[in-house]
Simulated scan of single mutants.
Amino acid sequence: MTDEGTTGRTGGTAEGTPEPTAAERPAPRSAVWAAAAWSVGVLALLIALPLVARHRLPDPLATHWNGSEPNDSMSLTAATLVPAVFWAVLVLTSAVLKRYWAGRTPGAAAVTLATGGVLLTGAQTSIVHANLDRARWQDAAPIGVEVVLILLAAGLAGLLAGLAARRYGARPRS
């Protein structure tokens, strides 16, 4: 026999109403503002990096390497917009994750934003750096260890975001 006025395994409050799940709890205002600031900041970097250096970049830019040699290119406009559009899709995906699946996937939105932001800005930085002061995209500098460092940084950012989300209330109820 259970007492409806106490908190037990059912997760109810003293009044007998169930506590809201992680999906039903609104995110703290500071977390929402931090996610918004991160999203806008990453978008600004993705667009600004190639545009600020455009007078020192070839058009088109090397955007893909086969080993250490560049083997594909994009126009400066495409190299600016494609990562920005991809980032916008990631931001929308994380908002959907947070809104509809927060209870089943705690911290997924934070991990998506952190990993995606570091990965995309790292890739954009590497592309701009490799093409800087080159006459043609075929002359772009080789990319090697940068890829490993970017992947490690993105993985670390995702791990830290996941740990922070678990620490600050994104845990599912048991």
Rank of each mutant, 00 (worst) to 15 (best):
S75W: 02
A53R: 14
L46N: 04
D72A: 15
A22T: 15
A48V: 11
P26F: 07
L92M: 10
A34D: 06
A95T: 03
L76K: 09
L51A: 10
A22C: 11
A79P: 01
V42A: 09
A37P: 04
A37W: 07
S73Q: 12
N66L: 14
E15H: 08
A48Y: 08
W65I: 00
A62W: 05
A53K: 12
A14P: 05
G67T: 00
L61W: 00
L46S: 06
S73F: 07
P18C: 10
R29I: 10
D72V: 08
G41Y: 05
A23G: 14
T80R: 04
P26E: 14
A36M: 04
L51F: 07
T17A: 15
R56Y: 01
S39L: 03
A35W: 04
A35V: 02
V32L: 07
A31C: 04
E24A: 12
P50E: 01
L49A: 11
T93L: 14
A53N: 08
A37K: 07
P70M: 12
R25K: 13
L81F: 07
P26C: 09
N71Y: 03
V91S: 01
A14V: 14
P70A: 13
A35Q: 09
A78Q: 04
A34F: 14
P50I: 02
A36D: 08
T63M: 03
V40L: 13
A35T: 06
W87G: 05
P70G: 13
R25W: 06
A79W: 01
A34Q: 12
A27L: 15
F86Q: 08
S75H: 03
M74W: 09
R54I: 06
A44I: 14
